[in-house]
Write a protein that binds this DNA or RNA. Structure first.
Length: 294
DNA sequence: AAACCCGTCAACCGCCAGAGG
DNA sequence: GCCTCTGGCGGTTGACGGGTT
């Protein structure tokens, strides 16, 4: 069995935090930083375990936390990212500034999951573990990346006239949002490139590369099923191979449905005749850029 | 008005991985 | 290499509030 819970000590308070406790915690961290979470409660005068303090701070008291309902943009991002990385809430949270993993997890479980189900889509296979990334999806991402770079390059020339500059960090670092100019930070291209260069993009590329290497032209294709199967269970035995294959094929089909849903119902992908774009049509984009450059 | 149901979300629990001795 | 400690993560729980019967 695992270690004993850290809050087993007698007398340590559990349950909802009071405003007084919140104040003690915030005051202490703002003055001293959190340092060792284990020692913090004692130093801050709190009758809580360190873990509880850390959770309260990271999920609720941190000053950079954005409260309030999720925007449709955030919602789309969550759906998309969940399709890529599955239940990696911390990864998803890293792409949504001001949102915590706990908040996103709750939102997924209470809103989005049901929303997808209501629309006739069972939960899509949760990310890499199900081995879902189709070659088509990989191609979509690659196309989107190229488009993002192209748009960013256009933006750079457009922005050159203004006082704002777009730095190269947008294409090289996932954590560069603060170093990029405000215009770049506001564009879809920047958002996508940051995502592409983050852990999420990395994880997606690794997995997709495995599928592509195995050869996988279309959903339901036998080769893809094998690739998916191997990805999901590299040391799989032959006896379960047949059922695995069927499950894998179903997973791929469901995932494709999920992608279609994300594109058509949520407007996440703006498809064009077999092509694909993460971004709105050019006219809409231009309109938003005009606003951005004002 | 009371009882019940259901959705939401803060908080907890158990496990894991990495660092350090 | 092994053990312990710590921080972090994802799954689950339970209190609470609003809606319905």
């Amino acid at each position: 069995m695992g270690r004993a819970p850290c809050c087993d000590k007698k007398g340590l308070k559990k349950g909802p935090w009071t405003p007084e406790e919140d104040k003690l915690l915030v005051d202490y961290i703002q003055a001293n930083g959190h340092g060792s979470w284990r020692l913090l409660p004692k130093l801050a005068g709190l009758n809580r375990c360190g873990k509880s303090c850390r959770l309260r701070w990271t999920n609720y008291l941190r000053p950079d936390i954005k409260r309030g309902p999720f925007t449709s943009e955030e919602q789309k991002s969550i759906v998309q990212l969940h399709g890529i990385v599955g239940n990696k809430w911390s990864m998803i949270a890293a792409q949504l500034p001001g949102r915590t993993d706990n908040e996103i997890k709750n939102y997924w479980n209470t809103h989005l999951k049901k929303q997808l189900r209501r629309m006739g889509l069972d939960e899509p296979p949760p990310g890499p573990a199900a081995g879902c990334p189709a070659a088509r999806h990989m191609a979509q991402w690659e196309t989107a990346r190229l488009e993002a770079e192209a748009r960013l390059s256009l933006l750079s020339s457009g922005a050159a006239a203004s006082t704002t500059t777009i730095t190269a960090t947008t294409t090289t670092s996932a954590s560069s949002s603060s170093t990029a100019g405000p215009v770049a930070a506001a564009t879809p291209a920047d958002v996508f490139l940051r995502l592409w260069n983050s852990d999420i993009g990395d994880s997606f590329r690794k997995l997709a590369a495995a599928v592509v290497a195995a050869g996988s032209p279309s959903p339901g294709d036998a080769t893809k099923k094998d690739a998916v199967k191997q990805e999901a269970a590299p040391a799989g035995d032959d006896s379960s191979a047949a059922s695995n294959e069927v499950e894998a094929a179903e997973a791929v089909d469901e995932y494709q449905m999920f992608l279609d849903f994300a594109g058509e119902e949520l407007g996440l992908f703006h498809g064009r005749h077999g092509g694909f774009s993460l971004f709105p049509p050019v006219d809409l984009l231009e309109a938003s850029l005009e606003t951005a450059f004002k």
